[in-house]
Design a protein around this nucleic acid. Structure first.
Lengths: 413, 413
DNA sequence: AAACTGCGTCAAGAGTCTTGACGAACTTTC
DNA sequence: GAAAGTTCGTCAAGACTCTTGACGCAGTTT
C-alpha cells in the first residue's frame, strides 16, 4: 500500500524538495516565505532547499512583478523552470499526426504536425511522429531525458496489458500492432497509448468544456463513435481497455446487421457514413459533408430533420448511460458536433424523456477545443495530442518526484 | 494537491510512526527487523518508535508463534492492537437492521442485529441501530472515540452532498430524510450513508465473489433492482450519487408504463413483484416466493422458463453495460440470485449475443456472501453491514494516520 | 522622513535517524 | 550435546535536517 519509503533524514530532505516543487507546479509563482507558509516549514529551510533547486536549474526566478498583497517587502518570485521537464502528447488520426509539448503547469511549449496519406502504414506513421517530436525537442533545446512521458493516441481500442490495438474495423492500419512497445522503442520514452477519442475527452476535461468537472462523459461523433469517461476525476478504461466503445451499443434489437456481428448498432444510425447517406437524398451527390452541414446550419429544414433524428437516437443511448453512470456533464465532440444545438437539443429532449429524474440534471454541451480547426484540414489530430500531454500530467502519480528524478539525470549528463 | 504538510522533524517522526502502523495493518504481524527492512529505516529507529507505540497501546505483542523462515534468532511478533480502533457498518433494510464491528485488518470484532416491523419509522430505526452499536461497543470495552467511522446502508438512492434519500418509490420510510445528518447525530460518529445494494457490492468486492477484482459490477436482484459499481478499485457513485440505478433502465421503448414516468423499465420485468406475478400462474396462489423458487431449483420446467426469461432481459441490459464499462466480473446477488445457474446461464447467453467481442470476457458469477442466510429471516441486512465497514476501510484515505489520531485522543481520555 | 511590516539569511540549538558494536536467541553442523 | 553461524533487539556516538531568534533590507503607511 504505502510503497514510498520515506524514512531516513535524507528522504525527509527529498520529501521537502518535492513538496516545494509540487507547490510551485500547481500554485504558480510564489516567493520563499509564501512557500514556507504553505508547506508548513520555516523560511530558513525553504531558503536552503530553494537555493539548491535554483542551482540545479529546476527552479527559476519568475520575471512577473511581485504580488504586493501585504504591507512589507516583496519577495523574489520563484517558479518551476519550464525548460526543466516537459510532457509530450502525440495523436495519430487516419489523415495525420500531431505532436504537442507542454510544461508541467500545462502551458504549451511547442506543437507541430503533418498530414499523412490515409494509406500510410503504421511504421511510417510512427517514424513521422517520432521525427516531429525530436525536431521540436531540438528546437527548444530539450533532451529526451527531460520528457517525463508521452501520451499517444491511435484509432481503435487498445487492449490493456498487451497494448495491442484491437480490430474494431478489419483492415485498419493499426490492427494487431503492439502500439505501446513500438512507440516506446521509436521514441525512447515511457509511453501510454490510448484511443483518439479518449484523448480528446481528456483534453476537454482539462482545458475545454469539461474543466473542473469530476464526472464527465465525452462523446465523440465522427466516422466512428467513441467516448471518453472521466469518472471521479480520472480516465476510466475498463478491465481490458474497451470501456466507452459506444458505436456498437444496440439501439434497435432487430435493426440492420452490423459488421461487428450484432444488429442495430448506434454507428449505423449516427456514424458519419450513416449521416452522409441520410443527407444525400436531401442535397444530392455533388456536395461534400461539410458543405451539407454548412447548409443545414444555415437553416435547411430537411438537413435539420436528419440531424435531429441523429440527436434523438444518440440521446436515447445517452439516457441509459445517465441512468447507469450519472455524469455531471456530457461533452459532445467530433466532426459532427460543430452543428451545435441542432444535435444537442434533441439529445437533451431524449435524455429528459428516457432518464430517471435524479440523473437528468446533466449538462449537455458542445466541445470547446478545436472549434478553430477548419473542417477537413487534417488538424483534428491536434486536440488529441493536447489530451495526450494532459494524460501524462494526470496519470503521473507524483509530478514533483518525477521532476526531481529527471533533473538528477540531467545534472549528471 | 499535496495537502499533507510533512516538513518538520517532528512530522518525520509522525510519518514514520504511520508508516510502521500501515505496514502492520496490511502486512499482518511482523517483528522489528522485518519492519525496518520494509520501511527502509534502521532497526534502531523501528525499536524506538515501536516501543513508543507499545506504550501507547496502539501496537501489541502478537501471540502467534514466530515465523522462523530465516536461520537466526526469531524476533518478537508485533501487530496492531485490535482494540485500538475499529470501523462500524450498519445496514437498514425494510425488515431489520444489522450492525457490524471490524478491526483495521478487516477481521470481525462483533456483530448483531434485530428484525423490525416494515411499518417502523426512520427515527425508531435509527434509535434501534444506535442502541445495538452502543451495546456492542460496551461489550467489547470500546469507546466511541475508537470508532474511525461508520458506513450506513439505507434503501433508496442517496443524493450526494445533501445526504437526502431520494424518492425512488413514494411512501418509503426514508424519503426526504437527511440520513447522513440524522445518523451522525444519533451515533456521534463520522458517517457515510449509502444505499443497501452498493454496500452489498462493496462487501462482495472485499470478501466475496469479487475479491481482488478492480472492475466489478455487483447486480442486486430483489424487490428493487440496483447495482454497485467498483471501478478501478473504488466505489463509483456518480455526480449526485445515482449511478447504477438500473431498475429504471428502459428495456422496451413502448413497454408498459412505470410509476417512475418512463416505459418498459427493467424492474417491471425482473423485479420480485414481476417474477412473483409470472410464477403465480405456474404454482398457484398458495405458495410463497421462496417455495416457488425451491420448486424451480428442484427442476420445475415452467419455473425455469420464467427465470430464464428474467435472466435474458437482465442479460440484455448487462450486455449494453459491458459495452460501456467493460467490467472484469459481474456478481449477481439479491434474494433472487440464490437460484444460481438458472439465472446466470441466460445472462451469459445474452451477453455473448449482444456485447462487443472485446468485452465478452466478463465473468458472470453468483454472490458468495450470505448464502447461509435463510430466506425471509431478516438477516439479509448483515451483508450490507459488512459492506459498510469495508467502505470505511477503503475510503479512509490513511488508516494509519487515523489510528494514530484516535489513539492520541484515547491516551488523554 | 519616520515607523511599520514582511522578506531573506545567518549562527546556534534541538530533534531524529544512522552507524557500528554488543549480548541474546535460535538454527545448523559436527 | 557443544560449537559455529545467523539474526534479533539495544546502546552510545556521530551525522544530518529542521527550527529558533536575530539581523539587515526593501517595500508601505503615517
Amino acid at each position: 500500500m504505502s510503497q514510498k519509503a520515506g524514512g531516513s533524514l535524507r528522504s525527509l530532505r527529498r520529501t521537502n524538495q518535492e513538496q516545494l516543487l509540487a507547490l510551485l507546479i500547481d500554485q504558480g509563482p510564489l516567493h520563499r516565505a509564501a512557500l514556507a507558509r504553505l508547506a508548513g516549514v520555516s523560511r530558513t529551510t525553504v531558503s536552503t532547499i530553494v537555493n539548491e533547486l535554483l542551482e540545479r536549474g529546476l527552479v527559476a526566478k519568475a520575471e512577473g512583478k511581485p504580488i504586493a498583497d501585504l504591507d512589507g517587502r516583496a519577495g523574489d518570485l520563484l517558479s518551476v523552470n519550464p525548460r526543466a521537464a516537459v510532457v509530450a502528447g502525440m495523436n495519430h488520426t487516419f489523415d495525420g499526426v500531431w505532436v504537442h509539448l507542454g510544461d508541467l503547469s500545462a502551458r504549451e511549449v511547442a506543437s507541430a504536425g503533418t498530414a499523412l496519406d490515409p494509406d500510410t502504414g503504421p511504421a511510417e506513421r510512427i517514424a513521422a511522429g517520432a521525427s516531429i517530436l525530436r525536431r521540436l525537442l531540438d528546437e527548444e533545446g530539450l533532451g529526451l531525458g527531460q520528457v517525463l512521458g508521452a501520451g499517444v493516441g491511435v484509432p481503435g481500442p487498445i487492449h490493456r496489458g498487451t497494448g495491442v490495438v484491437g480490430v474494431s474495423l478489419p483492415g485498419q492500419p493499426w490492427s494487431h500492432v503492439n502500439a505501446a512497445d513500438e512507440f516506446e522503442r521509436a521514441l525512447g520514452l515511457p509511453v501510454t497509448v490510448e484511443n483518439n477519442t479518449r484523448l480528446e475527452g481528456v483534453a476537454e476535461a482539462r482545458w475545454g468544456a469539461g474543466r473542473s468537472v469530476a464526472n464527465l462523459l465525452y462523446f465523440g461523433l465522427s466516422s466512428g463513435i467513441g467516448s471518453g469517461l472521466i469518472l471521479d476525476g480520472r480516465l476510466y478504461r475498463g478491465a481490458v481497455g474497451a470501456a466507452g466503445e459506444l458505436g456498437h451499443v444496440s439501439v434497435s434489437v432487430n435493426g440492420p446487421a452490423c459488421r461487428c456481428g450484432n444488429r442495430g448498432c448506434l454507428v449505423l444510425r449516427a456514424g458519419i457514413p450513416a449521416v452522409l447517406a441520410a443527407l444525400r437524398p436531401v442535397f444530392g451527390d455533388a456536395m461534400t459533408l461539410d458543405e451539407m452541414l454548412d447548409r443545414t446550419v444555415a437553416g435547411d429544414r430537411a438537413g435539420e430533420r436528419v440531424l435531429a433524428d441523429v440527436g434523438a437516437v444518440v440521446g436515447q443511448v445517452l439516457a441509459n448511460l445517465c441512468n447507469l453512470l450519472n455524469p455531471q456533464r456530457i461533452v459532445v465532440g467530433g466532426e459532427l458536433s460543430r452543428v451545435g444545438e441542432l444535435l444537442l437539443t434533441p439529445m437533451r429532449t431524449a435524455i429528459r424523456r428516457y432518464a430517471l429524474a435524479l440523473v437528468r440534471e446533466v449538462d449537455v454541451v458542445q466541445a470547446e477545443l478545436g472549434r478553430d480547426v477548419p473542417p477537413g484540414s487534417g488538424l483534428g489530430a491536434r486536440i488529441g495530442a493536447l489530451g495526450g500531454a494532459a494524460l501524462v500530467l494526470s496519470e503521473t502519480p507524483d509530478l514533483a518526484a518525477a521532476l526531481n528524478r529527471v533533473a538528477a539525470k540531467g545534472a549528471t549528463a
